[in-house]
Every structure is written in C-alpha cells, then in structure tokens.
Design a binder for these strands. Structure first.
Lengths: 345, 345
DNA sequence: CTGAAAGCGCTTACAG
DNA sequence: CTGAAAGCGCTTACAG
C-alpha cells in the first residue's frame, strides 16, 4: 500500500474548507449536505483522485461489505462456475467476493487458514465442504464453530448432515441412484463407478446410492467395478485401462459412471485406445457438465449440477437468512451421445 | 461480521492481567516477552478462540498483507490457471490473494470497480489487460494512473507498449507468426484465423503476426479466412461453419488457427459435422493448451502459454520490483494429432 | 446543515 | 520485559 500526501479525509477536508464529518457525509451520499458544500467537496475529491480507505471504514462500521468463499481448488472449472455464480450475485448485492482456495490448508506455512479467515472479519463466508475425509472431520467442526463466532456461514457441497449450519447440499446418493436407474433402463447390467477417494464423505454417499440401486435391481456388487482414485483426466484414463486389463472381456462393464467430467474424459480416451466404441460397446457418463462436455467425441452425457446457481443461492442465503437449515440443490442428467441402450449381454 | 463479547485485545489483556501492548507482542511473536507472560496470554487467546482483526491491524500498519489480481473472467479455465499460479505464489510469500473479475466493470452498479479497488488498499495489484478495446484505452490509462498512487501495479497479458508499468507480456504477433511458420512448413497455403474481436488490442497484434507471415511466404491475405467473433466454443463452431458455407470447396482452408482452445473445440466439431477429417482434410490449432486439449478427438494441437507460471512471476515481480519494465513470457507449440502436413493443393 | 469529539481495535515509539 | 499513550483514517451520535 502506497501512502502519499493529500490522501486522507483530513487533507480533503482542509482543502475544501470543511470538517472531516462533512467530507464523510458527501462520501456516503448523505442528503443533509448543502448542494454547494457538496460541490466544493466533490471537486476536491475528484481533483485529488481521493478514495476513502475501506480499511478505516471497516473499523468503525460493523460490516466490511465483503464476503468470502472457500473452494477446494480452481483447476476443475466446476469450481470456477460456483465462484462465478457467487461473485456475480455478491456484486449485484453490493458486496465484494473474495476467493479462498482450500488447498492453502495443506501448505505448511505454520498457520491454519481458517484462523486467517477469522481475522478478515468478512460479512459472511460460504464454505464448500468437499474432498473432506472423515479423519479431518473433527478439525473441520472445530474450525467452523470458531469461524461462526466471527461471521455467518453457509455450507455448500456434499455436506454431512451432522453439520448444523445453513446448508445447500446435494443428495449425492439420490443422484448416483438416479444415474443408475437411467442406465438400468437401457439394459445395462455391468456398470462401473470410477474415481473419488474412498474416505471422502461425498464419495461415500455416492457409493451408497450406487449400491442401493444395484440391490434394488438385484444385481451383485462387483468390487472390480468400483475403482477409487484421483478426480483428474489422467487418473480416469488409468483407472479404466487398469480395470479392463484386469478383467476377462466377458466381464467388461457396458457402462461407466465417472465421478466427474475430467475422469469421464480420461475414460473416454482409455476406451477408445482399448478399441471400444462409445456408446456401442460402452456407455460413459460424467458429472458437472463442464463446457467441454458437448465437445468431446462422442459428446459426453453428464449431470448438470447447476453450480453457478448454487453459488448465487449461497450468497442470497448468507445475506437473507431464513428458517430452513438444509436446502437441496437441483441436478439433472444431460443426455448426449456417450450413453445409449446396450445390446451386449 | 459478528461482534461478540470477549473478542478484542482489551478483553484478552484484562483476562490475562497484562496490557494490550503485551498481548500485541505475543500475537506478533516478539521475543521480548517473558516466557511465563507469554504462556498466560496464549492460554487466554486459545481459550477464547481470539483472532486479532486484520482490519484494525491494516489501519496501523503500512501494509495489509493482501494482493489482488484482476482477470477478465473465470469461465475460461485459462484464467483460472493464471489465478492459481498467482495465488500459490502469494500464499508462499505470506500474502492473501484476492480475485477481481474485470467483468464487474460492465455492471451498471453506478461505480467504477477501479475505484473500489483503490479503496481496498492492497499491497499490490496484478492487472490482466486483455479484451481491451482501443476506445476504452483512455479510461484504462486514467484508472491505472490513479490506482498506481495507491498500490504497486504489475500488468500481464497483451499489454500495449505505451503502458509504462512493470509488465509481463506476450508478443502475440511473434506467437501468431510462429504458428503460421509451423503450418507453412507443413505445406499449408490456405490458412484461416478464427475468433477475437477486431478492436481488441491483443487480437490486433495477432492479426499483425498472421499477415506478416503471409507476406513473408508470398501468400495473399484473403479476408474470408479471417473471421472475428466471440472466443467461445459456440462461436468457434458457428464461425467455421459459416466460413465453409460461404466458400467453394476449392477455397476451403486446409488449416485453421483458433484464437483459443474454446474456439478450436467448436471448430473441431464444425469440421466434423461438415464431413471433414481432422487433420487429413483440415488442421486445427488452438491456444492456451487447456486441460481438455489432449482429450478431444483428435487431440488438439495448442499453444502452451505457461499461464500458471505467468501468475507466479507477476506476484514475484510485485513483491520484488526490479529494473526491467517489460518482460516477455514464454510460449511453445504443443503438437498433437489435430495438425499435420497437408497434401491438398 | 455543519463541526468537535469520541471511538472502532490494533501497533509502535517512548518511558520506566 | 512491560505499560501508558498516541495514532492509523474513518463514522457517528451529539450539539449547535
């Protein structure tokens, strides 16, 4: 921050020949200022390019006009969408939205980013609770509790129901069984599920939906069909290749549900390289409906999670709390050419 | 921001039986505190979950430990990469990095976001100067000048050379002729350039490189081969379709350079739908080397602009100013299967 | 309609 | 090693 002469409210006041209180009133657009006084002050402000310090203002007022959002990372465009939705809504409401990637949590910088967040004195914080392992759960609860004493919180993502904060969540279990039903209706009986870490709470809930659907359809749970791993394109490619390599052709799945579109893109490539036609030999379904999903070959069937809308809703929730605690976010399957009925038995 | 009892330095001081100066010293890890005094204070801090206000601290100190970065938008993963690079580097250096999408500039919220930026009193700001039209150039210069009185600036992107600030820029002209050379070596003589707004300064510089390469190769500039438009997948699809529709087959280009990978993906789809094989009938080259480039069909040749590194460099430049003013960023062609020598004459 | 003064929650010389 | 006090740049009752 560059300090320069002629840069604070005192300088403006003295140059305009008024008190700092009057400058402050002009700055905040109060109506109780004589037009000519206002003009005088505004002239000086413009001439000096003066901008009041949000820091000082934040100290006297009870709010800072800034919100925050914590997201796992930005390398998955999915999160960029959430941010964009939240940012736009915040701007519309007159707030500045700052982004805090979760990942900083892992850096051994010697401090807990949650504590840094508390220091910022935001007017509200949206936390995307994803990629959370059960082990780190206690730490999370403690952090949230302390944070909530400094600012209102809204949780989004696959939020465990024990967390008692205003929440907009997905029922990933329902979502997984929904996709399963879609595939079952198309006669698929060998359906694989690709990606995600076993200990991740959101992943666990998907697994539950997957297994429930199998059970309902009286199909066995075959552990070779459930491969865990990173949620990246590279991992998707590897996971499918290894799965197929490890199975007799008769047992190859006729459909693959990928944890997200990145994994699905990788799987698409792996399938092609194994000489499989999509969707004739194998259907592949992603999740998040990224911008590139319609542009893969074949175009990827995916799940639209309405992430931008989710971000916007979270902001509204933060600003206008209501009585509901847990709200469910919408999702829907976007059917494209990577999935089709199977004729393989 | 939620105000609560027992939440400021006075409360901690009185509970610990010391002065606020001592609490402040403990907080900042000064060594001049008696171990047992420190313990006493630390206990109270931990017990109360106390975090000092960064707002108040920012007021007394000459810095805020926070940097900002202005990017056009986040819907192109390209910018997410720049942010990620900048964010990580900032964290490493002990700074908080906030993101400010340019687009807010267009919103008719009645204020200039540049002014809001000045109010934040950041320790430094990285501005990505892209999608800038010549018309808005004066406004930009004025904004930058005023901003620079409040905080150090570093400009990145396709920065016009008239802007006299520390800058990390691309020579887009050189980059465009580089790609042209690569295609010319592969015997292409009908090369189209797709996307970008004509008035955009970065686009103008690419056009210059494109034309220079044509001239050098003694090839004519054919205006049908230069289509302007948005830099989105949808636009890319449309632009190529319309270009081909408007030309006799003998004049169809054998290679297309797209402004970015989004446009390239769209063009890939359009080509396919027009019955063209890539790369046999037409080569397509993108720019930015997005995560999905290796996963299109065929995998997309693109230009790696090292965006993450660019973000990191900008942060370093901000924190440790040197004498160089304009620095050039690296780029290189990533050759994949969407481009190949042509046999069409 | 305008100003003098207190206060927001810290840090930082200055004494002791 | 510790504390009293001034100050950072604003806002906001309170007078007038």
């Amino acid at each position: 921050m560059v300090k320069e002469k002629g840069k604070n409210i005192y300088d403006i006041a003295s140059e305009a020949g008024v008190s700092i209180a009057t400058v402050s009133r002009v700055l905040r657009g109060e109506t109780s200022v004589l037009p000519e006084t206002r003009r005088k002050v505004e002239d000086v402000i413009a001439k000096r390019g003066y901008r009041p310090s949000a820091i000082a203002r934040g100290l006297t007022q009870k709010h800072t006009n800034s919100l925050g959002i914590v997201l796992p990372k930005l390398t998955n465009p999915n999160y960029a969408m959430i941010f964009t939705g939240a940012y736009d809504e915040a701007t519309r409401e007159g707030y500045v939205m700052s982004l805090f990637p979760w990942k900083s949590m892992d850096l051994k910088t010697g401090y807990d980013p949650m504590e840094v967040l508390a220091e910022r004195r935001l007017d509200g914080l949206i936390m995307c609770v994803e990629y959370q392992k059960k082990e780190s759960y206690d730490h999370l609860t403690a952090s949230l509790e302390n944070l909530s004493r400094y600012m209102p919180l809204v949780l989004i993502g696959c939020v465990p129901s024990e967390l008692d904060y205003p929440t907009i969540t997905y029922d990933m279990s329902l979502c997984a069984s929904g996709v399963m039903e879609y595939l079952l209706e198309m006669n698929h009986t060998r359906i694989a599920l690709l990606g995600g870490m076993k200990e991740d709470m959101g992943v666990m809930s998907r697994d539950a939906g997957y297994r429930a659907a199998l059970e309902k359809a009286k199909l066995p749970y075959i552990s070779s069909y459930r491969v865990y791993g990173d949620s990246t394109t590279r991992a998707g490619e590897q996971m499918l290749t290894e799965m197929l390599d490890g199975l007799q052709r008769a047992y190859w799945p006729t459909a693959v549900i990928a944890l997200n579109d990145l994994v699905a893109l990788g799987a698409l490539k792996a399938a092609r390289e194994m000489g499989l036609r999509v969707p004739e030999d194998i259907s592949i379904i992603g999740c998040d409906d990224l911008f590139c999903a319609p542009y893969s070959e074949p175009p990827l069937t995916s799940i639209n999670m309405h992430q931008q809308e989710l971000g916007a809703r979270a902001v509204r929730r933060l600003l206008r709390p209501d009585d509901k605690t847990r709200e469910l976010a919408a999702w829907n399957i976007v059917k494209r050419q990577s999935s089709a009925p199977t004729e393989i038995v």
